[in-house]
Amino acid sequence: VEVTRAGPTWPLGGRAWEAVRTEAFASTSLDLASPVHFLYPTRMTALQPAITAFVAESFQPGRPVLEAAFDVARRIKAEFAYDPKSTEVSTPAIEAFTARHGVCQDFAHIMIAGLRGLGLPAAYVSGYLRTYAAPGKPRLEGADATHAWVSLWCGDATGWVGFDPTNALVVAEDHIVLAVGRDYADVAPIGGVVLGPGDQLIKVAVDVIPADETEPRQKAEAPADHDEHQAFAR
């Protein structure tokens, strides 16, 4: 995989968010990258006054859209606890928001629901995130996993920009896109029904490393009570 996405230019700016909202609703395009597909709520990102109000705190009148969106991602990172045991893949955004706990899927849904509540087009992105070993430690093989973040349409001139509320990041070259949809249900990596007498367990290990890396890696071990199915789905 080759990622050529440029990193953000600081300080973040962009057009006033109200102008972006007006431009989005005026769009007549129906191509795949059109903002019109991502303006409206879904089952997993239903409009909720509490979530909209939370996101609106970052969108003061006239504030640049990129600056405001990053502020939302930063606040989610600061105010919500990452807890893989607190939610399921079917958990709606309002439940994770109320509990202030969740995983990347939940944080993406919360941010998307709030942005759409303000009339801004926001998409759900599923993919991989390259992580880095601690100083002096080898990279762990299989430590990376599927990840989720938000893509916000910031006007025709700027296009789509990714924001990672789990890590309070503007998406750059460390995020690898697998699929884009309106919410998790559009891009779930597995689907269907299995009927049988026994239990099933899915184990997934992912490596995201530079192609020219030559340092040895150690196996990453999942905790004994780690739910492999949910880790894969998220």
Rank of each mutant, 00 (worst) to 15 (best):
E228W: 09
A53Y: 05
A222S: 10
D83I: 04
L118K: 14
D144T: 11
L129I: 10
A24E: 11
T214Q: 12
I76C: 05
R100V: 04
K203W: 02
V177P: 00
A24Q: 01
D199I: 02
I176M: 09
V193G: 05
G162R: 00
V1W: 08
P216E: 11
S27I: 01
A188K: 01
V177R: 13
Q230G: 09
M111C: 05
Q200I: 13
R139S: 12
A224E: 13
T45K: 01
K85S: 12
G142W: 06
Q218W: 02
Y184E: 01
L201F: 03
A145Q: 12
T214M: 12
D83L: 06
T158I: 15
V170S: 04
E215H: 09
I51C: 10
C154V: 07
A134L: 14
A185E: 15
V187S: 10
P41V: 09
V170M: 10
E57S: 12
W149Y: 07
A123L: 05
V72F: 07
F25C: 08
P41N: 07
I176K: 03
A26Y: 03
D225K: 07
S151F: 00
S58P: 02
V1A: 14
R182D: 03
R74F: 08
S151Y: 01
Q48C: 09
F97P: 04
A19H: 13
I190K: 11
D225G: 11
P121K: 07
I51H: 02
A134M: 13
E173F: 09
Q48I: 04
K77M: 06
A69D: 01
A231K: 08
F59T: 04
W17D: 08
T214Y: 06
P92C: 10
A211F: 04
A224K: 10
L178V: 12
D207I: 02
A50N: 12
D186V: 08
D106K: 01
P64E: 04
A143V: 10
I209C: 07
L66G: 13
T87R: 00
D31G: 08
G192A: 15
W153T: 02
L47C: 09
A157C: 06
A46L: 12
R75H: 03
E228S: 13
A205K: 14
L169Q: 15
L47G: 07
